[in-house]
Design a protein around this nucleic acid. Sequence first.
DNA 1: TATGACATGTAATCTGTTACATGATTAG
DNA 2: CTAATCATGTAACAGATTACATGTCATA
Lengths: 191, 191
Amino acid sequence: MPPAKIPALGYALLGMLQKPSSGYDLRKIFSSTSMKTYSDSPGAIYPALRRLERDGLIRGTVEEGSGMRRRQIFRLTAKGISELRQWIALPITREDVGSNLKTIMLRFAFSETAMSADASAALLKSLDSALTPYLQHLREQLPAMMNPAVPTSARLSLECGIRSFESLAEWTHYALEIYEKKGRRKIGDKL
Amino acid sequence: MPPAKIPALGYALLGMLQKPSSGYDLRKIFSSTSMKTYSDSPGAIYPALRRLERDGLIRGTVEEGSGMRRRQIFRLTAKGISELRQWIALPITREDVGSNLKTIMLRFAFSETAMSADASAALLKSLDSALTPYLQHLREQLPAMMNPAVPTSARLSLECGIRSFESLAEWTHYALEIYEKKGRRKIGDKL
DNA sequence: TATGACATGTAATCTGTTACATGATTAG
DNA sequence: CTAATCATGTAACAGATTACATGTCATA
């Protein structure tokens, strides 16, 4: 079996399955949070779960509690955990920042429980490195937009992008500080 | 023919076709800008153009310049222009802010040329109205994340979202100010 | 016991991705 | 002339959306 390409929805499911859940549980969580971007329709989630099970990344067991409705609980297999970790730890490129930001944030959100606080901090550093050249690239496009022939709304759209990535860079530094403090506290505890 | 659902890629093409272009031109623009989110592969763009033509929203004419390669130039039809305008002017809901932000920004970027500066300002006001309750909803989730059982990375992800929407709200006000200044200047010119 | 919410799914359709194919034109 | 690039596409496939289908359990 070659590595098998898993779409974003699949990884979102893997990440959520760090806590064993039924398809219905997952759907509820997806539709009530921003994860609904990855789809919250049964026609997407159930087939995706079946594919993950087919590929040996999760395993479902039918729960037979007395007086309970039939529910199938899915759990990560060892293979599923390692696939999830490998996906989280993927290096972040300039292109990712532009097109897969949501996925990057999802990886970060999962990183601490699936791996460690150190892995979370490493992801943030990787993001910061990708962010710097990306922001520079955006800023370089600004002078061309100052041409009066370019409509104001097009220039403002670019400015919106620049601001949002600046804000993301600030958050990255803020988040890194928190992990650094945590690290120091942990060392302090040992003394 | 019922209104015919047009996917995001279709609207992105309609917007870009405010300037008549060939499929190849469009592909180049898409792959060199952030529009690549809507796909830059020929297998998506050419079929999408054909669908738009089938629905009477654009019309292609083969260009026969001497010593030029065969190129088909697509233009918006009257129906295409009105479909584009109607899409741009769609009201913005709280849900849109969470899941279709990219599309909203695309609509804004097109708004001034396809409609007017007034329409751009109206879109910004609509965005601002949707943003306020959405931000409130995000902020309400924060206390639950302060529970030490919740991993830091999950809380930080939420904070990232809050910050990015705060920054978007600031940009909205900044952009609105610019349109208001423009409006005053226009009135001043008439005096 | 009937109504509605729970839990799971399927089928038709559409769109996008990937990878390949084709001819025409320009550069070396 | 031949290699690259321009400009246009096609075919096979995977995945998502929408809408519907099924049975189970709680409650009124």
